[in-house]
Design a protein around this nucleic acid. Structure first.
Length: 474
RNA sequence: CGGGAUGUAGCGCAGCUUGGUUAGCGCACCUGCUUUGGGAGCAGGGGGUCGAGAGUUCGAAUCUCUCCAUCCCGACCA
């Protein structure tokens, strides 16, 4: 595992320069690179394959929660966006506006969507007539544009891919309940069970709330440098948007109340989170559940029937529903290929060489902990689904252990500032408060989320006995 | 917006101070042979309007001016 003495490391070590390590991984694992316009990114096939697996697993969960997919336009009339004051104020600095098209200046500029609340709620108002049309639960997969001054690939780019869900409900309680359902059943479940990233599921403070929302829920994960990354959010929008669009419905009593809406989103930022939550000095570590290749079957040397046996094992694995890839490119050295697959974070390698085959075995190497075991040629395929499950669990357990190690209970703002230099601080929200929050912000530290003391999610930042999770963030 | 720096092959860099053959090195790439149990070796080869424009000069990657782009720090915003 460790590079030989005297040989330069493949990647900048994390402990030396974490941002440089991140850049190195993006390049060497062929995940993504900068686009031609500052702040944009090209997602390369391997990075996009990871995103596609995220998409498909998220999409299943979203649909299981009752939402259906639709697509709304990229362009929004500028005047339209300005209808919700707080919302437009939050986004106006980062809007891209088209003023010329079709060879002439437009009468009214159009904005490239930074999010679709305004458009979708406009159509909701048109589609919703009575309480029988509620709840209306719609999701879209799309790109959005927010002009960013400090872009970082996957984490903060001018254009990114995401899903945004938008819903309308008859009552505030139903809207709240649905925003929370997405938070838990879709987002937290996906992040912990699929991405293997332990998340704090909580509420944002007023200061960190989404523009136009009445309440914002969030999911925060710890990266390997101790900083926090917001991996998803879910918002209660109250009646702010339904009021703007006169989104009313006829209820059972013949009254015509305004609907209550929510919105919720996750983006390609999760790819960055995946890289930084699990990756090590040897490269990416991808959990089996979203790995484009779960197993690579590696022929050490083309000798005897090594290639034939490797092919058979690969086919056997594929037949068992494992995403397995055969690497018989023996024109490259074994070491190079092993290193490359490690860089790409393939969860398990099955290595087949002459020494193994002489004994009727193959070597199974795990990416998460670097361990190697020998298994009989005839048993390896059957054993792998179990090994992959173990790898998945182990990646989560290790991430959780790292987070717990770097989370400190503190009693005041000064201690929180200190603890946030290396990880998270947990402090009573009552001793931080909005004044303490402002003080933290001056040192580039923020309240990432608020939890109840039993770890559940609060419904107001004014509940008693809340705990603030404090840290530096991306 | 202010301060500092950097632009030379796909990537990373040297050369510039003191102008002078054909602009060089490492990695990557191509061909051949030997290799292959953790980043292969040897030999040969391809790839550059030196960020752009103007100027000085017999001659500019090198000196001067202007512009453009990128990065870092600060400010602003959240």
């Amino acid at each position: 595992m460790a590079p030989k003495a005297g040989k330069a490391p493949i990647l900048t070590p994390q402990s030396e320069d974490f941002p440089q390590w991140y850049q190195d991984v993006l390049n060497k694992a062929e995940l993504a690179e900068s686009g031609l316009v500052r702040g944009t990114m090209v997602i390369r096939p391997y990075g996009y394959a990871i995103w596609e697996h995220m998409q498909s697993q998220m999409d299943q969960r979203i649909k299981a929660a009752g939402a259906v997919n639709a697509y709304f336009p990229l362009f929004i009339p500028e005047s339209f966006l300005k209808r919700e004051a707080e919302h437009v104020e939050g986004f106006s600095p980062e809007l891209a506006v088209v003023t010329h098209a079709g060879g002439k200046q437009l009468d009214e500029p159009v904005v490239v969507r930074p999010t679709s609340e305004m458009v979708i709620n406009h159509y909701f108002a048109k589609w919703i007539q009575s309480y029988r049309d509620l709840p209306m639960l719609v999701n879209q997969w799309a790109n959005v544009v927010r002009w960013e001054l400090r872009p970082r690939i996957f984490l903060r780019t001018t254009e990114f891919l995401w899903q945004e869900g938008h819903t309308a409900h008859a009552t505030e309680a139903e809207a709240r309940s649905y925003a929370q359902r997405i938070l838990h059943e879709v987002y937290a479940d996906f992040m912990e069970r699929v991405l293997a990233i332990p998340v704090y599921v909580g509420a944002k403070t007023r200061r960190e709330r989404f523009a136009g929302a009445t309440f914002t829920y969030c999911l925060e994960g710890m990266m390997r440098d101790g900083k926090s990354l917001q991996l998803g959010t879910s918002h209660e929008l109250g009646q702010n948007f339904s009021r703007v669009f006169d989104m009313t419905f006829l209820d059972e009593n013949g009254a015509r109340p305004l609907a209550w809406t929510t919105s919720w989103g996750t983006s390609t930022r999760m790819v960055g989170g995946l890289i930084m939550a699990h990756g090590d000095d040897a490269g990416l570590v991808v959990p089996p559940s979203i790995a484009p290749n779960q197993v690579v079957v590696l022929v050490v040397k083309d000798e005897g029937d090594a290639v034939e046996i490797a092919r058979r094992i690969t086919a056997d694995l594929t037949g068992r529903g494992v995403r397995a890839l055969l690497d018989d490119k023996v024109s490259s050295s074994f070491g190079r290929r092993a290193t490359d697959w490690e860089l790409k974070g393939v969860p398990v390698r099955v290595e087949i060489g002459p020494r193994d085959l002489a004994e009727g075995i193959v070597t199974v190497a795990r990416r998460d902990d670097g361990t190697k075991v020998s298994l009989a040629v005839d048993e390896v395929a059957a054993a792998l689904p179990g090994i992959l499950d173990a790898v998945q669990q182990s990646i989560f357990d290790r991430a959780l252990a790292r987070r717990e190690e770097r989370t400190v209970e503190v009693a005041d703002v000064a201690q929180a500032l200190e603890a946030a230099q290396t990880g998270f601080a947990r402090a009573p929200w009552s001793v931080i408060g909005e004044a303490g929050e402002a003080e933290l912000n001056r040192s580039a530290v923020s309240v990432r989320c608020l939890l109840r003391s039993d770890g559940t999610v609060p419904e107001s930042q004014d509940e008693p006995d809340l705990v603030a999770i404090i840290g530096r963030s991306y």
